[in-house]
Each structure stands twice: as structure tokens, then as C-alpha cells.
Simulated assay, not measured.
Amino acid sequence: MKKKINNLMIGILLTLSLSCKEEKSFRIVLLPDTQVYSESYPEIFQAQTEWIVNNKDSIAFVLQQGDITNHNVPEQWKVAAEALQHMDNIVPYALATGNHDNGEKGHAGTRDLSYFNQYFPFDRYSTMPYFGGAMEAGKLDNYWCKFSGGGMDWLVLNLEFGPRNSVLKWADTVIQAHPQHKIIINTHAYMYSDETRMSPDRSHHWLPQSYGLGKDSVDLVNNGEEMWEKLVKKHANICIVVSGHVLNDGVGTLVSEGDHGNNVYQMLANFQGGVEGSINGGNGFLRILTIDPKQKTISVKTYSPHIDEYKTTEEHQFILTNASF
């Protein structure tokens, strides 16, 4: 009888433990377009990652969203590496690359990420416990990571600026191999500032096809709408797509239904120089996503550790309700 009671108690405790794990909310931090910090304001970049380190216990993952540097030169990569690698072995993070990280002086005339892979070497990041795999051995041009949050397994796909068809096919195989994971896509150019995905049909600027690397007529480059059609909408477990790149007011949010009836939460956030109202290349503003599976919400806040201030207007601080994961 005593043994049965003990077994029953163990079962109850395990159930309660799993239940608590499932209900716990978690945070993801987004670092969009850090390019001007790498060029002119290293102290702001350091303030961002220092704040993340100081709040490590409440942050499950960090995503840098491309345009790590402004002109793709060693001096700027050194600043970026010092700031971002401050989080090494403390908070898991992943990087997407942008147009300013490609080619000579960051003009994206060619798809060349040599400096990126020099300052963020595959041999270093492939040993991290959250590293999953890469499309090409020895390169982080396109790679995936994994983490746990809210009692769920998550997979982050970090895709190049204007992902080529071959990259989308690779991403498709990774997603198919992980049907039980919730998928986040981290890429530089996807959403536009008019709450739609990037597309020439809506006369959008800064499309990947307008850069030199976008002229590849063999392995076609894809904008946001093409990524949606070819990859994102096809998978039931894709939950979130985040991007930067676009100027104007630098923000955009869209919830779309995929082919399987799943909601996909798509967000643009960009605070760099050139965005309306930007100061000091963005003044250190970053995005904080709090995901609460129990309440079915994604709470979005925009905060600057550099000036200790929140943006509180509705486009910068909002809650997505009835979020399905």
C-alpha cells in the first residue's frame, strides 16, 4: 500500500512539474540592424548585449536580424564581434546577415560573407549546445539552432538576405525533419512597413532583387512574398518570421493563415539611421517578445538599454492574442 501511495505521489509531482514547465512564459530578444552601432556607436551595441547578459535568466534566445555592419569592413566586424560575443556561453543567440554584410564595402554587389565567417567562425559556433546545423560545412551563411521555451521545442532558421531557391529548399528539408519543433524564421528582408510582405507588386523599395547579388538568374533570389509562397505558408509548425532592413517608420506586423490553418506571426522592426525619428543609429532600441503559451499571447515591447526607455506607441508595444503554437 505504501509503495502504491509513493508511486502515486511521484506521478502527481511529475504531472505538476510538466504542467508548470508548459505554462511558463519566456522571452526572445530581437536585435535588428545594428550596422550604425558597429560603425559609429560601439558603446550602444555594448549596452544592448550587456543588458541581455544582466537579464539572462529571463531570456531564452536572442536573434540579430542582419546588417550586423554598415560597410562590411574589418573595423566594424571587430566591434560587432566584441559586442555579440559578450553573450557567448551565457545567453544563446543567432545571426542573420543583411545586404550591408555582403560584398565590397557592404554594397551587396556580390554574395560574399567572407568577413562574417571570419569574425563569427563556424568552428566556434558549431560547438555551442544550441547549434543545430548549417547548409554549407564551415559557413554560417544559413544555419539553424534549437532551444526550449514554454514546454516546447523551438527551431530557429537563420536565412541569408534574399534567400536563394536552393536555400529555401534546404530550409524545407530542415523543417520536415523536425515536425515536433515550433519554427522561427530569422531573416533580414521579409516584411515591409505597410504591414505586408515585401513584393514588387506593391512598389516596395529595397527588394533583394534590386541589389547586385539579386541578379542571379540561375539560383533565384526571393523577396518576402516569394518566401511566403515557396516555404512559410506550407508548414504547420512555422509560427514566427522576424526581419529588419526596411526604412520608412521601420515597423510592420502581419498575422497570416498558413495552408494548414496555422497562424504565422510576421514582424518588421528596424530602428537604424534613416528610419523616421531615428537618433544615434537607433539609440539602442531592441524588441522583446514575451511568449505565453498558457495565455496564448505574444507580448511585444520596444526598449533601449542605452537610454533606459520604452517606445509605448501602439506600433511598438502591443499584444497578439489567441496565438496558437
Rank of each mutant, 00 (worst) to 15 (best):
N6K: 13
L140F: 10
V156N: 01
K4H: 12
D101M: 04
K233R: 15
I238T: 10
T127S: 13
G261Q: 10
G150R: 02
I307V: 15
A80D: 01
S217P: 07
N55H: 12
R27V: 02
G150C: 06
F147Q: 00
V251Y: 13
D219P: 10
S193Y: 15
H235M: 10
C239D: 12
V79T: 07
P293R: 09
D57C: 02
A137F: 13
S126Q: 12
A80N: 01
D308W: 05
L13G: 11
A171Y: 13
P208L: 04
C20R: 11
M152F: 07
G261Y: 14
D67W: 04
S324A: 13
E225D: 11
N223W: 04
N248E: 15
D219N: 15
G150H: 01
L231G: 10
V251W: 11
E136Y: 13
N283Y: 12
E315S: 13
A269G: 08
Y41V: 11
T110L: 01
L254N: 15
K234F: 03
H107C: 00
L320G: 02
N7H: 12
A96Y: 05
Q209F: 07
Y190R: 00
Q180V: 08
Y125D: 00
Q64R: 03
P163N: 11
Y265K: 02
H204F: 05
H235L: 11
K2M: 09
N283W: 09
W51T: 04
Y143D: 07
V221H: 02
P92E: 02
N102F: 08
N270L: 03
Q209H: 14
P74G: 07
L213K: 03
L247H: 15
P293W: 08
D123W: 09
K56R: 11
S243W: 05
D219R: 09
G150N: 06
S19C: 13
N186C: 07
A81G: 00
N72D: 05
S304F: 01
G244S: 05
P129R: 08
D249M: 06
P200G: 05
H86N: 06
N102L: 14
I184R: 03
H181V: 04
D292V: 10
M191Q: 07
W228D: 06
D259L: 12
I240H: 05
H316N: 14
A236W: 04
L30A: 08
I52M: 02
L16W: 06
A171R: 12
R164L: 14
L207F: 10
T290G: 05
Y125I: 00
T187N: 13
T253N: 15
R164G: 10
V91A: 00
M128Q: 00
Q180R: 15
